[in-house]
């Protein structure tokens, strides 16, 4: 948050401030990203003091970015639209195995079996109680893209899971469940997660559709991954 606040100031971006005793920038992130996770699909909502063309906004902010972070799109929301965080419904991830992981070759068949299950229970602990939750329905889509491999030639897993305030399924939880299913000891160190996109739900022709948070029709599919 502070990183982007400073970038706003350096670039003299027309960002608006809240009122009251201690004004702060009108800025929020759609879905926080954990340490160690990379991403190419993160979203941030801001308030503006004046209208600005998307190209100008992107150019201004990218002039204040450090290596490795880039603004890729900018769109103005309708007055009626809710903020990013409230809209989040799903997210896409690419998961690969780290060099140190002991995942056996042939894991892909086990994965297919794992995903063929109708139910997959994990224990969710809160202060009040321990609950068993069926996470399988929260995996909206998955694939093992044939033509996509990491730098060591290993295959990756594409996952689309529920995200946001109603239902949130972290990919690490899915992987932990998979390792349990395959009877292999799991540490979070075994996997590297890369977020591809964050989606909201929109009504289109009477059907619920997933659209990227910036409204673009971008929708990761098997074809687009390869």
């Amino acid at each position: 948050m502070r990183y982007f606040q400073k970038a706003m100031r350096r670039s003299h971006f027309p960002i608006s401030y809240t009122g009251g005793m201690s004004p702060h920038m009108v800025m929020s992130f759609a879905a926080p990203l954990g340490i160690g996770i990379t991403s190419e699909g993160e979203y941030m909502d801001i308030g503006l003091t004046r209208s600005i063309e998307p190209e100008e906004a992107i150019h201004l902010l990218n002039g204040a970015m450090t290596e490795g972070i880039q603004i890729s799109s900018f769109c103005i929301l309708d007055e009626s639209e809710k903020s990013g965080m409230a809209l989040v419904a799903a997210a896409d991830y690419l998961i690969r195995f780290s060099q140190e992981s002991k995942i056996p070759s042939g894991w892909m068949d086990r994965w297919t079996d794992f995903m063929a299950q109708q139910v997959c229970f994990v224990t969710k602990e809160t202060k009040a109680e321990k609950r068993e939750i069926n996470i399988r329905p929260l995996v909206y889509r998955w694939s093992l893209p044939r033509d996509l491999t990491d730098s060591d030639g290993g295959h990756m897993i594409f996952l689309r899971t529920a995200a946001g305030s109603r239902n949130n399924l972290k990919p690490e939880l899915v992987m932990a469940a998979f390792y349990r299913f395959a009877d292999i000891p799991f540490t979070e160190d075994d996997i590297r997660v890369h977020r591809l996109e964050i989606y909201k739900e929109t009504m289109e022709n009477g059907r619920m559709r997933l659209t990227a948070l910036d409204g673009s029709k971008r929708n990761w599919t098997e074809e687009s991954l390869s």
């Binding site: 990218n62 002039g63 290596e67 140190e100 160190d189």
Partner: peptide, 30 residues
Amino acid sequence: MNGDHFMRKLALSERVLMSVEKPARYIGNE
């Protein structure tokens, strides 16, 4: 902007960075 600068190779591997507190202490590039 260092447009022509490829992302540097870090001295510490991903595994080591992910296993310590506040890995941003050791990556530079500020």
